[in-house]
């Protein structure tokens, strides 16, 4: 185990020395990889912030049950009993026709209703469902519509669902972008390792003659690819952080203009580790393919 760790430490050191030996090339590769990775990372972060904003704006979704104009007291009581007994209902409130009219008048639309002799508004129930499962809302929506005396059921969170669908589409686009740019990172590493193998041809041949195993020869290249990916990941994180810092002021100002409080969030510890790990993995993957493609010939 100690020997294995020593060999890995040596390979990592050798890879670091390789990176340090060509500082310009290392910095340029890290920048290319970093900028490529910062695009999907920033996209993910943007969607995450929009989702947080949407959650804050929508609050708890409500379902409004509007009764028919001719619904009798018995039907109203029956709906109340049904709602009280429904396990999927967290709470509900009855809004009588009179109360609804009062609300409408208070909202400044009293003049519109002035010419009417009868109250045109129906009795209604405002229902808060239990949990936040959209399927549950749909179940309740369908069930309430079947009850006697009910004219119309309205799910108030429909626009949130549409927003969530859009966010889902955005996430798919970010994943696609991450896949494409990740592929670019793999290609960059593949080529860098190919050049490394070419420049270290003599060292590889001499090591083979002295009894180096394939694993011993391959190991520094794996480390090189992983470290290059990791450096790119750091550049990507730095780019995202700088962008968040630059945008947070204007975004807060915009939110304040709408009377809201919103703070743009940068990547957390977990997200940062995922970005770094993903970048290192892609670097390793690119080097593994390159080593397999270009070194196997020499090791045969």
């Amino acid at each position: 185990m100690l020997n294995w760790m020593q060999l890995h430490a040596r390979a990592a050191f050798q890879a670091l020395r390789g990176l340090a030996r060509q500082p310009i090339g290392t910095v340029l590769s890290a920048l290319v990889v970093g900028i490529a990775l910062s695009l999907p990372a920033a996209g993910y972060l943007l969607l995450d912030n929009v989702a947080t904003l949407a959650r804050g704006v929508s609050g708890t979704p409500e379902i409004s049950i509007f009764m028919r104009q001719d619904a009798g007291e018995g039907q109203l009581r029956a709906v109340e009993r049904n709602l009280a007994a429904d396990a999927l209902v967290a709470s509900f409130r009855h809004v009588s026709r009179e109360e609804a009219l009062r609300h409408l008048e208070q909202s400044g639309l009293g003049d519109v209703l002035g010419g009417l002799t009868d109250n045109p508004l129906p009795d209604a129930f405002i229902v808060v469902p239990r949990g936040d499962d959209p399927e549950r809302y749909a179940q309740l929506h369908a069930r309430f519509g079947d009850w006697d005396g009910v004219d119309h059921v309205q799910l108030d969170s429909a626009w949130v669902d549409r927003l969530h669908a859009l966010l889902g589409l955005g996430k798919s686009a970010v994943i696609l972008l991450a896949g494409l740019l990740g592929f670019a990172l793999v290609v960059i590493t593949f080529n860098t390792i190919r050049l490394q193998i070419m420049t270290q041809r003599q060292e590889i041949d001499v090591s083979r003659l002295l009894g180096a195993t394939d694993r011993f020869i391959r190991r520094p290249f794996y480390w090189f690819g992983s470290l290059q990916g990791l450096l790119g990941g750091m550049v990507a994180l730095g780019t995202v952080w700088l962008s968040v810092r630059a945008l947070s002021g204007p975004v807060e100002g915009l939110a304040a203009a709408y009377g809201a409080v919103f703070q743009l969030a940068g990547p957390g510890v977990e997200e940062s580790l995922v970005i770094l790990g993903f970048a290192a993995f892609l670097g390793w993957f690119g080097s593994a393919i390159s080593v397999r493609r270009h070194l196997s010939e020499r090791l045969r």
Binding site: N3, Q6, L7, R10, V206, S207, L210, G211, A212, F216
Partner: peptide, 9 residues
């Protein structure tokens, strides 16, 4: 180098 390859301390 040969000793590094064989993992000598």
């Amino acid at each position: 180098l040969p000793l590094v390859i064989t993992g000598h301390p």
